[in-house]
């Protein structure tokens, strides 16, 4: 239905020729923008309602004194449904470790929460299909579980800033929200998020449409194809500074894949964009000493590179 609407606008109303570069680019742009905004609005709303049942205080209680392995798996899964904003990463981190959540388990949560987020998933589902979206969730969880276990094994508690261990943490009662409040919250959250990301989506889809129509097929196959062993690490390195623009990055990457970028490289790039970011590193520096911060970034980056190679090899 969306497809015929886009066809109607571009080829009937504007009168561009089907198959022409400008026609195909504009058609692609209108179709993708409509599809993504429809998906974003409905899914963000549903996810926001689910999240009202998982406040971080509750997640903390579920994870406190959990053993490694089981704790890491649970933490990575809870990371999907617990709302997380990098601006509250510090109180969240302190709240977790103070209440006895093991350090490695805390990291599994901190890695999975921003990486497996609804905006990235919707964009992947809308543009790449549900299979790629599921692979992204699965490998994102694996990276979070694995990196958390390794950090736990390395016994790095002494590289957490000292004041964190001396902090007195109170016990806030969680005020249960009524259904009406949950709906209101979800509506506001959806509007707020859409307001924030819509320019990135439009610009990203616009650039993607341009690449789709104007860049020659197989243009990237030589550099970003599966035969270049450096493509994955370079993609990960490029992904770190692109934080918060996941909504704009995915449509561009989608178009690049059409031009020959390999799927594992695409996934690794996406994960680096969402999981590793400079602003988050700066915020986490408040609670982590440099050594632990470097270990955290290093292990996650390595795990993501491995995921990239794996999917380049098997898909």
């Amino acid at each position: 239905m969306l497809k015929s609407f886009a066809d109607y606008i571009v080829f009937t109303i504007i009168g561009l020729v089907p198959g022409s570069r400008s026609g195909e680019s504009l058609n692609f742009f209108i179709y993708d923008t409509l599809k993504i905004f429809l998906l974003l609005t409905t899914i963000i709303f549903v996810v926001a309602i689910i999240r009202t049942s998982f406040p971080p205080e509750k997640t903390k209680r579920m994870l406190s004194h959990k053993r490694e392995y089981v704790g890491n798996v649970l933490a990575a899964l809870l990371g999907i449904v617990t709302p997380f904003c990098s601006c509250s990463a510090v109180p969240l981190f302190i709240g977790f470790v103070e209440s006895g959540v093991p350090l490695g388990v805390t990291f599994s949560f901190l890695i999975s929460s921003p990486m497996v987020n609804e905006v990235a998933l919707i964009m992947l589902w809308g543009l790449f299909g549900w299979k790629i979206a599921l692979i992204y969730i699965g490998s994102g969880l694996l990276v979070a579980i694995f990196a958390g276990i390794v950090i736990g094994k390395l016994k790095m508690e002494k590289y957490v800033q000292d004041y964190v261990w001396e902090m007195q943490v109170g016990n806030a009662e969680i005020v249960e929200q009524t259904f009406r409040q949950k709906i209101d919250y979800a509506r506001e959250y959806t509007l707020e998020l859409l307001k924030k990301i819509w320019p990135y989506v439009v610009i990203g889809v616009g650039l993607g449409a341009f690449i789709h129509g104007y860049v020659p097929q197989d243009f990237l196959a030589r550099w970003a194809g599966r035969d270049n062993p450096f493509a994955v690490p370079i993609a990960v390195a490029l992904g770190v500074p692109l934080y918060s623009n996941a909504a704009g990055v995915i449509p561009i990457v989608h178009a690049l894949m059409e031009k020959g970028m390999a799927i594992g490289t695409v996934l690794a790039f996406m994960m680096a964009v969402t999981a590793l970011s400079l602003p988050e590193a700066i915020i986490l520096k408040n609670v982590l000493k440099n050594r632990l911060l470097a270990v955290f970034f290093g292990i996650v980056a390595m795990a993501i590179v491995c995921v990239g190679y794996l999917f380049n090899a098997i898909l």
Binding site: P56, P83, S88, L92, Y163, Q168, V169, N171, A172
Partner: peptide, 10 residues
């Protein structure tokens, strides 16, 4: 520290 004293995490 003051924020944490209330047990607030978000």
């Amino acid at each position: 520290p003051k924020i944490m004293a209330y047990g607030v995490m978000s």
